[in-house]
Amino acid sequence: MAQPLSAARQEILARIRAATTDVTSISIHHGRKLTARPGDPGLLAQRVADYRATVTRTDDVAGAIAALLAEHGARRVAAPPGLPADWLAAIPEAVRDEPPLAHAELAALDGVVTGCAHAIAETGTITLDGGPGQGRRALTLLPDLHVCVVRADQVLADVPDSIAALGDTTRPVTFVSGPSATSDIELERVEGVHGPRRLAVVLAA
């Protein structure tokens, strides 16, 4: 590291120590005790729909995936490593991310089908942590349609439960609550800016 920069480090730390000499006791609160409580799939479905994403509740996941892709006219669809075989089979033309596709190739696909780490009922959120069947972050970002499968036993209660379930993970995590959106022009909400413009959640019974 160049000398002036480490000088900056020393000086900032010294300034901080000088600024807080009056602080004699620091309240350490040991954080909240978090546990990953299960959540209500019905509430999840309702809350996801509040974001104007679609929710399909089914016990035939593969059938639902096929129907959703057909509905959106999605043929060439990205498949992350570890996607269950029957979901993969529901994709008309699965494009595997092994070896990794270039960003431009991903952007040209019609959609992506993934699972998730878990979901948050209270906020209608899908949590992705790059685990099996989810893929790297770019995979759920560049294609215009994201079909995401949530098993009922993956539904957690609220945000703190999700943080508890993630533990001290060092893998990248993305919380997805509905399709990308903006209200930047006269506060009028527009769904679909830079991420997938359509999010379709399949909630497996």
């Binding site: 209608g124 959120t125 990248p172 993305t174 399709p179 990308s180």
Partner: peptide, 15 residues
């Protein structure tokens, strides 16, 4: 209740 996207990352993740 939640904003559309919240990202967490820790240093770099290969791949």
């Amino acid at each position: 209740r939640m904003n559309p996207y919240t990202s967490l990352w820790t240093g770099v993740t290969p791949g």
